[in-house]
Design a protein around this nucleic acid. Structure first.
Lengths: 191, 191
DNA sequence: CCCGTATGAGACATCAATGTCTCATACGGG
DNA sequence: CCCGTATGAGACATTGATGTCTCATACGGG
């Protein structure tokens, strides 16, 4: 039943530990292994039995986030229909992962080690969506798909942070991000 | 001549050290005091004679960034003229600080200690700009000034990061940020 | 009831970064 | 030339997090 392929020998659920770790690190990115263990309701020794070290834990979280993000891309059916609506759906589907994503986003900027290949797959799929939007004449051509992708990530991250700090209501997050990304701040003159 | 008010007793320029530190930390946010000293061309001891510790150094960089940002706000005359054009001018004026700002942006998210009061002053001025834009009917009313401010910060940060990683050309940074923030990704239907 | 297994508590060594200190030296003005 | 001052090099203690290890215990199935 384990994600890794080998049978799970531990009684406490590895997934529940990951979930608690994600929740804590989302709130406090610098939490120590000690704090993470306490938050997960287990001892530090047990935490180490699940994850070889902090790096391994973060990499597991990365893997989790990537899987969820890819699932969100599937769920949003980004290859179908109006690209703008597809972007909206994607943001809605991604919203549950926004906090974790935000944590990993800054984490990845801090350490310039080799990055997980999964991010490249995600980037490619998101870029494809924006490129399709350009080809169908829905998105402007003077903003590159690469930049639109980075901008989406940045808006999700700062949006999650704004929610975390109480400057934006959680229920408004997806609307704020998608409206700004798609429509911009300027009042629409047409219609 | 010192920013702090007391006479400068050191021979090497404190400002030049700050400048080098900013350049390095912009590239590598986790640089140690040792690396910073080497980058500045001085010994670690001398670095400590200038700044009591890493915290003090980062706080000095924070102060520097705040001053430059406020100077950019002045320079852009954000209180005058078309709000959209004012936002454009602000982004252009802020661009030279984008890298440093990006570093401090993630730095501040990591440590939840008391923040420098200066950021609040900046936030207030930027929010005022967006609010003025709403009152003058130029900006949409369904995106709060607080969110537009966070979004501006986030786009500047991710833009600076995209430039740093070579995904966006440095000369395109201000256009990418201002076009997306003001116009959004969608193709303008009017005109 | 017995035993295997996971766990908790904690001791212990390690490691990297930091902050402090000393001392010799180079430099520049008087 | 002499001296004060800033500097560089490096030793040293400290600190916080990490990783490893041991041992006692609780739990659950056979």
């Amino acid at each position: 039943m384990s994600h890794t392929g080998y049978p799970c020998l531990m009684s406490v659920n590895r997934e529940s530990v990951l979930k608690e770790a994600a929740a804590l690190l989302t709130r406090k990115a610098t939490a120590s292994m000690d704090e993470i263990a306490k938050a997960a309701g287990i001892s530090r020794a047990t935490l180490h039995r699940h994850f070889a070290g902090r790096d391994a834990l973060v990499r597991a979280l990365e893997q989790l986030a990537i899987e969820r993000f890819e699932h969100a891309l599937d769920e949003a059916r980004t290859g179908e229909g109006d690209p703008a609506e597809a972007v909206r759906r994607l943001i809605v589907s991604v919203e549950p992962v926004a906090g974790l994503f935000s944590f990993l986003y800054t984490e990845n900027q801090l350490f310039e080690g080799e990055i997980n290949e999964g991010w490249n797959r995600l980037d490619a799929r998101v870029q494809d969506l924006f490129q399709r939007g350009q080809e169908e004449g829905v998105f402007r051509l003077d903003l590159s798909p690469a930049w639109l992708t980075d901008a989406l990530y940045g808006l999700i991250a700062s949006g999650a942070w704004a929610v975390h700090d109480g400057r934006v209501a959680a229920k408004d997050l997806t609307r704020m991000v998608s409206e700004l990304l798609l429509g911009g701040a300027r009042r629409r003159v047409d219609r």
